[in-house]
Design a binder for these strands. Structure first.
Lengths: 124, 124
DNA sequence: CATTATACATACTTTAGGGTAAGTACTTGT
DNA sequence: ACAAGTACTTACCCTAAAGTATGTATAATG
């Protein structure tokens, strides 16, 4: 995972925004390009690492793992590794993750209303 | 406003995410560092450009204008300019903007609960 | 004995977005 | 005459996040 500088104006402003603005807090947690898609996939069903990879073919392995680690650190998902070889790792939504589903649903509804016809299938 | 390349993998993936994922669509609209804060300020009351600037002292003028233009292009806010000099420009939420308030409120509520640790140690 | 599959890790590059600083045009106040 | 306030605009720099490519250990399979 990429190092970040201890100090920079961007970091300062981010801290400011996080302290002032709960919305930014949520953004920080689900605001990567792929995070909502990962969460959507996990909301359908628990999945192994490789299942996620196949479910989202366009994502690179680095991005997948990186976001999984972040989501895990933010306690939105739970990682379970069976001590076997080859490894068997399953990801699933935590309580926080599940509680986000309502919001995500509302966001999706708003988006679909706002841009009628742009979206074909998905809910996540 | 900064130019973007006609083609890049990032743009490709963004298009993919936007087409597949309504959440990403919402993120695109309210996902700048300052956008939620601007929207929040305008949800309190309509404001002139300079009032916004004073309400959010940490933001640079470039960022403020840039986000205002984007929010206007996305039809979340409405810009009204009186043809006088010195200029008198007022910004206010559009209908779309107002309809976002519920979602923003829910996000804020979730953020506060999550920060408190409400969801911790509960199984998904 | 080489390939495939598991679940990652890590070095390096690119790009979009954010930040800094300065300028524009026009009027009012001192 | 000059500073200050209005609402921007533009040129340039820097950083965080995203992308590319390759490597790791272990076991089963052909």
């Amino acid at each position: 995972m990429t190092r970040i500088k201890e100090y920079s104006t961007i970091q300062e402003n981010k801290r400011f925004a996080l302290a002032q603005c709960p919305v930014t807090y949520v953004m920080e947690k689900i605001g990567g390009y792929w995070k909502p898609i990962i969460l959507y996939q996990l909301s359908i069903s628990d999945k192994r690492y490789s299942e996620l990879r196949r479910a989202i073919p366009a994502i690179s392995e680095k991005m997948l793992i990186q976001h999984l680690k972040q989501l895990e650190a933010d306690k939105l998902i739970i990682r379970e590794a069976k001590p076997v070889v080859p490894p068997f790792v399953t990801y699933r939504l935590s309580a926080s993750g599940h509680s986000l589903k309502t919001i995500i649903g509302d966001m999706a509804a708003w988006a679909i209303e706002d841009a009628k016809g742009t979206f074909e299938n998905v809910e996540g």
